[in-house]
Nucleic acid binder design. Sequence first.
DNA 1: GATGGGGCTTCCCACCATGGGAAGGTCAAG
DNA 2: CTTGACCTTCCCATGGTGGGAAGCCCCATC
Lengths: 149, 149
Amino acid sequence: MNIGEVATASGVSAKMVRYYEHVGLIAPAPRTEAGYRVYGQREMHLLQFIRRARDFGLPMERIKQLVALWGDDNRASRDVKRLALQHVAELRSKVAELNAMANTLKELADQCHGDSRPDCPILRDLSGNEHRVTQVPKTGRGFRDRLAG
Amino acid sequence: MNIGEVATASGVSAKMVRYYEHVGLIAPAPRTEAGYRVYGQREMHLLQFIRRARDFGLPMERIKQLVALWGDDNRASRDVKRLALQHVAELRSKVAELNAMANTLKELADQCHGDSRPDCPILRDLSGNEHRVTQVPKTGRGFRDRLAG
DNA sequence: GATGGGGCTTCCCACCATGGGAAGGTCAAG
DNA sequence: CTTGACCTTCCCATGGTGGGAAGCCCCATC
C-alpha cells in the first residue's frame, strides 16, 4: 500500500502518518526505489489502533506506551489494564471538574434576570466576587490546557 | 501600575497581558515617555475578569464577547445570560462525551485479566473490533480538538 | 556621578497535533 | 507522450503559553 491507501484504510491522514513516523510513534516505512513509503496490513492495523486510541482521548504519551505493548507479544495484560484504568481515572476527574464549572455557571445564570436591564450576577461574579457557589480550580491555566496535558 | 504589578495583582502573567493587548482582547495601554505600559484599577479588574472566565473554561471567542458586555453599561443581562447558558450546554455535552469514553474504556478494562498473560481485550478492541460497548464519536479528530475548538 | 540589578520593551523560538500549500519527482491510464 | 493523480520534502499557521536574548530605563546605593 502507498501512504494514501493506508491513510484511507486506517482513517489517519497521510500527513499524520508521516508525522507519526517522524516522532517515532511508528517505525520508518520501507521505501520503493522512487522513495515512496510502502505499508502492509500490520501497519494499517497499527494506524487504526492509534486512531482509535486518539478517539478515546488518550494522550500521545500513553498511546506510545500502548503501541509498544501492542507490538510486544510478551506483554502482560496487567500493563495494558493499568494504562487504561489510569486514563479512565483521568477522564472521570475531568468530568467532575467540567460538571462543577457547568453547575456554577448554571446557578449564576439562573440568578440572572435575562432581560434588558444591565445588572447581571454573572458579570459581578466574574469581576471578583469571592463568594463562589461551587469550587473552581484556582490554577492560572484553563481546563483546556490540563486536558491537552 | 506597571505591567508587572498589574500581572501580580490580576493573576495574569505579563506575557499574557501583552498577548491579550496584541490580539485585541484588551485596549492598548497608554505608555509612559519611556514606553512603559501603564494600568489602572479598571484594567486590573478586567484582567481578573478574563482570568476567571478562563478558569471557567470559556473559549477566547466567548470571552471577547463577555469583555465587550463587561465594558458596556447599556448591556442587556439577556445577552450575558445567553452566552453563559450556551457555555453550560457545551460543557454538559462534553461531560457526556467524556463519560461515554470513560465507561467504554472501563468496561474493556473490566474484561481484561490484568495478569501476566498477554491476551487483553483492550488491545483487541483498539485494534479494530467493531462491537463497541459504548458509542464513541467516529470523527477522525480526538475529543481534545473539539474541546479546544 | 557612576554602577549594578531588576524591570520594561520588542522580537524570535518552542510546544502539540494538525492542516495548507509550494516545488518537484513518479506512476498509471489514455 | 501527455495528463492528472499521487508521492516526496520543506515551510508556515494555528492558539495560548512560556523561555530567552538584546537593548533601554529607573532607582538605589556607593
